[in-house]
Write a protein that binds this DNA or RNA. Structure first.
Length: 486
RNA sequence: CGGGGCGUGGCUCAGUCCGGUAGAGCGCUGCGUUCGGGUCGCAGAGGUCCCCGGUUCGAAUCCGGGCGCCCCGACCA
């Protein structure tokens, strides 16, 4: 994409801003096949950082990685009634291979429950084989009608955890534990605060007993479902004969869970932190946290400055900072500043002849507003030792800003659908109301306001005043959080 | 699946109404110059005008058919 045109501002057209910013930051590009994307190095680097952090957290909670195949027999998908109903419309199916029509069509996995639990059935005989807690990093395919880079593409990358347990309670605990892992990851790494809670029957995963979710608020105040965990009960184990002999010698069906987050998180990061200059990458996710731009006129200056830049790079790297020198000679410093700001690198260090003389450097943070004071002139040694702390502060600042924005646009104690509609048509955001639990109310809210029930919030997010009236009339049995969603 | 838009150098697009040598800006290459917020100059490379068919002496342009992509809504991580 050419950069000579000004970036659309968020307030003018958030959707256009997103599309432009993703491409200009070189996160991803459209592939020739409709609805699928190429993830470019900068975007993939961010995803790799996410993967590494999540993977460590999965390992720390007793999971191992494995890999299951891309192709799944159609009959497997069809085995679980609700599951097939949910996924059939968006399946991509292989009907021919090796120049011949296949006897049974093969589905390109939209998710792997069926193939995984069919294998678990082979491996699990006794309660001693439980729990079995595996995760896989994979691509999946869901033939979406309308796609957007990262947020919804036909093929996307994700992780899917799949576990089998001896008891309902243990599976329930796993489901909750992984929801907590997701929440921690999203807050601590993406600096993206989330509301966790239970999905309603109509919003839950196809084939699950219950689904929990992490809902994040984007800058346009719409909700992004950022991750889900599912208690699958015995729905899949019954269909795939996943049984085990209990301690008491009784043959029982295992209890399963599954949970996943995807490259959608990259989109969430963009829409949580980006500004009208470009994206902003939280330091913990940034493949490059600090970029050093050498500034010089003559060749004589160049030598010294570039040497100092390399020296600073090594000293920062020794402090554990991911740093690189932008020594491209055909771009002037201003062009480099623009590029790295567009890509959201947290800090830039400028080193020129004047700094060399004073043994100082110029440190500029990505989020500081326009103006002279955004540049900090620091002694070299100080810039080096303080950088890890600056990065940590930057990370926290992003989370606080995002959290403050979410709180400013959370509306509690809303009593009626009319009032709900008013809020959504006005300021927008997350709206908390009482709910009877009746799906008919969800339908009415959807029809009248365009909002959906994002979740029944966990205690951490419930209103201090428990609502007693359902938003659709009558008595409330619980609190619900509503929003327009991606 | 409905509605809208668009297919012309790498990118953004003009040219299409009214047929007549295929253009601009940016990017790219070379040389020089510059470099503390998108340097400047000179020279240069680069095109089956989405595809197929038709009309015509002649089609990017007119006619018919097809394909693709993007955006907006209904369904979805």
């Amino acid at each position: 994409m050419a950069d000579d045109k000004a970036l659309t501002r968020r307030e003018d057209d958030f959707s256009a801003w997103y599309n432009e910013v993703v491409q200009r930051a070189e996160l991803a590009d459209h592939s020739p096949v409709r609805g699928s994307m190429v993830i470019r190095p900068w975007g993939y680097g961010i995803w790799e950082r996410m993967q590494r952090a999540l993977d460590d957290m999965f390992k720390a909670t007793g999971h191992e990685n494995a890999y299951f195949p891309l192709l799944i027999p159609m009959s497997f998908i069809e085995r679980e009634k609700e599951h097939v109903k949910g996924f059939k419309p968006e399946l991509a199916v292989v009907t021919h291979a090796g120049g011949k029509e296949l006897e049974e069509p093969l589905v390109i996995r939209p998710t792997s429950e069926t193939i995984i639990y069919s294998m678990y059935a082979k491996w699990i005989q006794s309660y001693r084989d439980l729990p079995l807690k595996l995760n896989q990093w994979a691509n999946v395919m869901r033939w979406e009608l309308r796609t957007r880079l990262f947020l919804r593409t036909s093929e996307f990358l994700w992780q899917e955890g799949h576990t089998a347990h001896a008891t309902d309670q243990e599976a329930q605990e796993e489901t909750r534990e992984m929801l907590g892992v997701y929440r921690t990851f999203m807050e601590d790494w993406i600096a993206m605060p989330v509301v966790t809670g239970l999905k309603s029957e109509s919003e839950k995963f196809a084939g699950a007993v219950r689904t929990y979710t992490c809902e994040a608020m984007m800058q346009d105040r719409r909700a992004l479902q950022a991750g889900t965990t599912h208690h699958l009960g015995q729905n899949f184990s019954r269909q795939f004969d996943l049984t085990f002999q209990s301690e008491e010698g009784v043959e029982e069906y295992a209890w399963n869970t599954s949970w996943g987050v995807s490259t959608r998180l990259v989109g969430g990061m963009v829409m949580t932190h980006g500004d009208d200059t470009g994206i902003i990458v939280p330091p913990r996710l940034a493949p490059t946290q600090v970029v050093i731009v050498p500034i010089y006129r003559k060749d004589s200056e160049r030598t010294g400055v570039v040497e100092k830049a390399a020296q600073m790079r090594d000293r920062l790297a020794a402090e554990g900072v991911r740093v690189r020198v932008d020594d491209r000679d055909h771009l002037n410093p201003g062009a480099k500043f623009w590029e790295w700001e567009r890509k959201g690198v947290p800090f830039r260090i400028e080193i020129g002849p004047r700094d060399l003389a004073k043994e100082q450097v110029v440190v500029v943070g990505r989020v500081t507003a326009e103006g002279a004071d955004r540049k900090a002139f620091l002694p070299e040694a100080q810039a080096v030792v303080e950088m890890p702390q600056r990065l940590e502060e930057f990370q926290l600042q992003l989370l606080e800003t995002a959290r403050a924005r979410r709180e400013a646009h959370s509306h509690r104690g809303v009593q009626s659908i009319d009032e709900l509609k008013e809020v959504l048509e006005g300021p927008g955001g997350f709206v908390y109301t009482g709910w009877s639990g009746d799906p008919e109310v969800e339908d009415r809210v959807k029809a009248e306001t365009g909002a959906t029930l994002r979740c029944i919030p966990d205690p951490d997010f419930q209103s201090t005043e428990v609502p007693d009236r359902c938003v659709g009339g009558g008595e409330a049995r619980m609190e619900a959080m509503w929003a327009k969603a991606y």
